[in-house]
Design a binder for these strands. Structure first.
Length: 948
RNA sequence: GCCGAAGUGGCGGAAUUGGUAGACGCGCUGGACUCAAAAUCCAGUGUCAGCAAUGAUGUAGGGGUUCGAUUCCCCUCUUCGGUACCA
């Protein structure tokens, strides 16, 4: 029988589909196992060969676990709200709902093509009203809760109102925005509007005015992790800071738990470090300084209270509230000029000139509470409004940035730490002895910090404080294609959530998706929808991309539930995700948000585990080879003629090159840098007028093109390993590979490419080897075209090959080393081939061993072996220990790195002989003297006993 | 700058806990089959010397611990990823 992968795939795809073979039950006596993939955004470009890497790996693991007798939840869905569909709609007028629906269908068929064992009955998509109903519902819960720092739990906002009406807010230890103290009496006289404003400072979903990342081109606010290199991640548009009233989620309330609970989860160490850096906990103190001639105090934050005697100036952020009040008349113009300068700078400018120091003196002075010295107060860009208190005491002797500032503006530098006894200690190391510091003199830095913190509290001019780098998450987008907020505003401007019965609040239809010019969301155009009876109006912003993805993994547990986001029983059974597979690019964004939401729902009693994901694995990226061309210009007299502004980039001291742009060539996957003919090159480059008439360098050698005159401008090409992206013309569609080589081969090959967690370029040069393996596996079952599997009992040697293979492959699956699994399959097959083994006793378990990796061919072979049940419900083979033991082992003895002979030794030595290890020195000595040992005992490659 | 990961043949990569470095695959060389090609099969393949047996050398570079180091420690270099004035 000929091996025909296409026919086999077609046959089993429809059979599996018809029999719902991957349907998962919520009522099972089996132990559960939840394997989750990060669901994709269904982009117009479709899947490329990089996406399935993680899906195939998780699929192998799911199939493996299923065959081991677990009830395996392995679902897939779509993160279907988002900017690209909206951009596409603006360009084409096609409704995002329609284009995303098309894309999802395309993704689904591409995924099915690879033979992934998803339970499609559980598919979710975040833009589906039955899904976003619950995204809105969770938002309502967040709005109605506050975070009690004493009890470390989210509590209903009603509790807080009760506390306020009985004792005011001074005793409440809550995660909150800045708010003045008030008494119970005050509270009870406050109007509804004032109460609402106060409660806003405590809610976990709240509104505030803040400087946000505004992207004019996209007409929306972006989160920090949606910005790359000062421009928007999507589209690369410039981003500026702008004050706006926005919705926020108080993720900072959970900062401590998000940090601590990292201890309990199985993520890679680098992933944990990335998350803790992002959370950025620092322990320090806030200190109040009196300001000369003012009643207001200046509140600063420092981790180094010990350095106060070296504080020769203060710096506050340009946006700081005190700037206007304290600036003296003589400095007003200078300060205004500086503020104007700061305001004019985009994010990109700021990032480009980090090393440049700038600032201005306010003319005001703070008073050092310990020696009453006057300390000038400056404003400068390098102090950030949003971190700490937005103000610092500058210690130029012990802080690099303060030092640079002092140098530039000629401010005094007072040495306060003697590091002479610590060679090589840097400014950042908390090492040395205090000097010039009054009562701290002679103390070690760490002790001085402690003493100072205590002293500040005794004198009531400061207190210990913990700060986090992480900011609250901006939750508003001025876009159309997202979840509408379930929020309305009273005529007085008090926000209220709509009743849960009204959910889902459907996203209304719209014809024109363009953002408005006044910063309002597209939904504001729908006056009928916005305006409600009695002067009420609707919120017109929508939720950001991370809203739906923050909880989707819970919906898979019970996707069709209409009364709850997931039923209690379903959550009780599935609990949490046992294995989460996805890319590192979500290390801080999605993973932190979803951990936060999960913890919030845990506090409310809806989820049963502290953490959503037990184990997290990150796949490497599959990169593409991008063929780029760029132009090079010698730097002449600093006068550079730009071809086009965007294309030029400073490359080095001596030359400028244009930003490489992709060569548009349609080429088959797998071919390496093509040797193009001249006419092809000319055609390509003529697409870019700037490049006509230039010298080209193609691949390794310079190609002079006769028809081109050499000029000062030179065009080169190079191939670059980079992301697979539509804009680079290097996207490879898995469908094409499946069509040529078959799905099983594609799956095996993706795994064989290299270690799962490593990034690697797509290179099909070695795919033939895997293809050969698949054909050889098939051929093992046939002789002269006839199925021939013998029922004879297998020999010990054959069993040993099989069971050693089972052992190694099982171990490798557990540690996610799939590339070595594929190698092991090839080894087993080679060895069976050389033993000429075609016995059922060997081949039956072999097929089951291969099944998770190559589901189609193994299902077909399984049927040929006479089984009526699907192989994917068969049991996974177990290695039998007695076949794993070596009867003897050949082992060379090395002395001083020199091989001294090879011998065969019994492997059944008593492990107790390990005590004899100390004999080894003795042994080597004698060997060197020319006396050979009688016997050397080696177990598992370790020499454990020597008999002389 | 800071944090993290990595560096092994012509290439992708193995070596699970310190124990024969280069498994497995690609590529290459030779052979079988064929009129021929493809496919398939067999053999060889780190480098240097040698007809060969064999010897020397070898895991980015330098040093250390060890009977023994790709693996552990210190220094240097390179590449990739994350981050960006966080007080």
């Amino acid at each position: 029988m000929e091996f025909n992968s296409a026919a086999i795939e077609k046959k089993w795809r429809s059979s599996w589909d018809k029999n719902h073979i991957y349907k998962v039950s919520n009522v099972s006596s089996k132990p559960k196992f939840y394997v989750l993939d990060m669901f994709p955004y269904p982009s117009g470009a479709g899947l490329h060969v990089g996406h399935p890497l993680g899906y195939i790996a998780s699929d192998i693991f799911s199939r493996y676990k299923r065959m081991q007798g677990f009830e395996v939840l392995h679902p897939m869905g779509f993160d279907s709200f988002g900017l690209p569909a909206e951009q596409y709609a603006i360009q084409t007028g096609i409704h995002p709902a329609i284009s995303t629906d098309d894309n999802m269908k395309r993704y689904r068929s591409q995924l099915d093509n690879i033979g992934l064992s998803f339970d499609w009955d559980r598919q979710v998509s975040t833009s589906d009203p039955s899904f976003y109903k619950w995204t809105q519902w969770i938002f309502i819960q967040l709005f109605h809760h506050w975070y009690d720092l004493d009890k470390s739990i989210a509590r209903p906002i009603i509790d807080l109102e009760n506390i306020f009406s009985k004792e005011g807010n001074s005793k409440v230890n809550a995660s909150h925005s800045s708010v003045a103290n008030f008494t119970a009496l005050d509270w009870n006289t406050y109007s509804q509007k004032i109460r609402s404003d106060i409660l806003m400072n405590y809610r976990l979903a709240y509104r505030k005015e803040a400087f946000v990342n505004w992207c004019e081109a996209l007409g929306t606010v972006l989160a920090n992790d949606e910005i790359k290199d000062g421009v928007s991640e999507r589209g690369g548009h410039p981003v500026e800071k702008k004050p706006m009233t926005q919705w926020f989620l108080r993720i900072t309330a959970y900062a401590e738990r998000l940090l601590n609970d990292l201890q309990d989860v199985d993520y890679t160490e680098s992933m944990k470090i990335m998350q803790s850096n992002w959370i950025g906990k620092s322990i320090g103190a806030q200190v109040f300084f009196n300001i000369e001639g003012h009643t207001d105090q200046l509140e600063i934050y420092t981790t180094r209270a010990d350095t106060i005697f070296g504080a020769t100036f203060m710096v506050i952020a340009p946006e700081h509230d005190l700037v206007k009040q304290i600036t003296i008349e003589g400095q007003r113009n200078a300060i205004d000029d500086y503020l104007k300068y700061v305001g004019s700078r985009s994010e990109r400018d700021r990032m480009a000139e980090v090393k440049e120091v700038s600032g201005e003196f306010t003319g005001a002075y703070a008073i050092n509470p310990f020696n009453n010295q006057k300390i000038p107060i400056w404003i400068a860009e390098y102090v950030l409004k949003d971190y700490g208190t937005g103000a610092i005491m500058a210690v130029p002797a012990d802080d690099a940035r303060d030092h640079a500032f002092a140098k530039k503006f000629n401010l005094p530098i007072v040495e306060i730490i003697d590091k002479s006894m610590y060679a090589g200690a840097t400014i950042e190391d908390k090492l040395g002895k205090m000097i010039n510091s009054d009562f701290l003199d002679g103390m070690e830095v760490l002790a001085a910090i402690d003493l100072m913190n205590d002293r500040l509290e005794q004198m009531s001019i400061g207190k210990k404080q913990v700060n986090f780098k992480m900011r609250d998450a901006n939750y508003s987008r001025q876009r159309y294609w997202g979840e509408p907020f379930p929020v309305i505003y009273s005529p007085e401007g008090i926000p209220e959530t709509i009743s849960e019965k009204e959910l889902p609040l459907l996203l209304p239809d719209l014809d024109d998706f363009k953002p408005t010019t006044n910063g309002k969301a597209p939904l504001s155009k729908l006056q009928d929808w916005v305006n409600l009876p009695d002067g009420y109006t609707r919120e017109t912003d929508t939720m950001p991309g991370f809203a739906g993805s923050s909880w989707y993994f819970l919906r898979y547990m019970d996707p069709n539930n209409e009364t709850e986001f997931a039923g209690k029983k379903a959550i009780q059974y599935w609990q949490d995700v046992d294995l989460y597979v996805g890319g590192t690019e979500h290390a801080v964004g999605h993973l932190l948000y979803s951990r936060f939401w999960h913890k919030f729902l845990f506090d409310l009693g809806y989820t049963v585990t502290k953490e959503p994901y037990k184990r997290l694995l990150n796949q490497g990226m599959i990169q593409g080879v991008a063929e780029m061309m760029f132009m090079r210009k010698e730097k002449q007299d600093d006068k550079i003629v730009f071809i086009s502004k965007e294309f030029i980039k400073d490359y080095s001291e001596h030359e400028y090159i244009s930003i490489p742009i992709p060569i548009k060539i349609v080429r088959d996957y797998g071919t390496s840098l093509p040797y193009l003919d001249k006419s092809g090159i000319i055609e390509m480059f003529q697409a870019f007028p700037a490049y006509v008439g230039s010298l080209f360098q193609i691949g390794r050698g310079i190609v002079n093109i006769d028809s081109f005159n050499e000029r000062d401008d030179k065009v080169y090409t190079k191939s670059e390993i980079s992301k697979m992206s539509k804009s680079l013309y290097n996207v490879i569609n898995p469908d094409a590979v499946v069509e040529e080589y078959g799905a099983d081969c594609f799956r095996l090959f993706e795994m064989f490419l290299g270690p799962f967690e490593q990034s690697k370029p797509w290179d099909t040069r070695s795919i033939d080897g895997v293809g050969k393996f698949v054909r050889r596996l098939w051929a093992t079952f046939f002789t002269n075209g006839e199925l021939s599997v013998s029922n004879e009992p297998a020999t010990a040697e054959e069993l040993k090959v099989l069971h050693k293979g089972i052992k190694r492959i099982t171990d490798d699956i557990e540690r996610f080393s799939f590339n070595t699994c594929v190698s092991q399959f090839m080894i087993i097959l080679n060895e069976l081939k050389s033993l000429n083994c075609t016995k059922r006793e060997i081949l039956d378990p072999l097929v089951r061993l291969v099944a998770p990796f190559a589901p189609f061919i193994s299902e077909e072979l399984w049927e040929l072996l006479g089984h009526s049940e699907s192989i994917h419900h068969a049991s996974y083979p177990k290695a039998i220990a007695e076949y794993l033991i070596e009867s003897s082992i050949t082992y060379p003895i090395c002395v001083n790195g020199k091989k001294r002979g090879t011998s065969e030794y019994p492997a059944d030595a008593d492990p107790k002989a390990l005590e004899e290890m100390t004999m080894q020195l003795d042994f080597v000595q004698k060997w060197l003297e020319g006396k050979a040992p009688k016997k050397v005992i080696v177990v598992q490659g370790k020499m454990i006993n020597i008999v002389m």
